[in-house]
Write a protein that binds this DNA or RNA. Structure first.
Lengths: 123, 123
DNA sequence: CGGGATCCGGATGGATACTG
DNA sequence: CAGTATCCATCCGGATCCCG
């Protein structure tokens, strides 16, 4: 009997399957910033419809990123696994801030402040 | 005259706009692993059609992640900006490896080896 | 408040065949 | 080798209305 071999799937691809969908990363970011409820996630996202948000939260729950609990209304929380995305989010933010060399999106002061905020919240 | 304010878009969202499309991350990973040519990117991706790959490479070029140059055939290369995604890729890989606590995808030896490889190539 | 049910249109992905 | 050109399927987002 030979040793069982699992086909080695690239871990990067597996990670991307968790966060590929359009709103997932933004919702996770919101949760790191303290948001918990359905209608909170919709704030500032005029294009996010109920259906899409609902599906999104469901998929995130199936993927083990969040939990859904009743607590005088329904609250969503990051799981251990969801929290483990902190460094991914941090590096995504740093990528943008570090490659915005022509200050297309931010001036130097913005960058400094944003780096500080993301570091405090995500690391 | 008041100070000009740019609307502050979340840097995480901007980063995601670069890598959201289905094959982008895998192509960038391939490039970190030394692949340069159209047909090399197709290896191991039976569902990646010519059209989709072509569009994908075009968009990545527009986004400043890669360059396209003729060199006895056409070669794609990561730009400085593209290379700056190294830590994002690394953290994506680590996320999967660190949260696979039930060894669903990898056994402990695989994990150790994969961590080593990604560290060498991406950091 | 936290969604579910429908419906629609555009974007995206994929297969196949062909080309300079 | 590095794509284009078609055609087709589908997914997905978004709008709207409805419900317990």
């Amino acid at each position: 009997m030979e040793k069982e071999e699992k086909a080695l799937i690239c871990p990067i691809e597996i990670a991307m399957e968790h966060i590929n969908r359009k709103w997932v990363i933004q919702i996770i970011r919101d949760m790191f910033f303290g948001k918990k409820r359905f209608n909170e996630f919709k704030e500032g996202k005029p294009n996010l419809s109920n259906k899409v948000l609902s599906n999104c939260l469901k998929e995130m729950e199936e993927n083990g990123l969040i939990t859904r609990k009743t607590n005088g209304g329904i609250e969503y929380k990051l799981t251990e696994k969801g929290l483990a995305l902190n460094k991914v989010l941090y590096e995504l933010a740093m990528f943008t801030l570090n490659t915005d060399i022509n200050n297309r999106y931010y001036d130097d002061e913005n960058k400094k402040e944003l780096k500080k905020v993301f570091k405090e919240i995500l690391l």
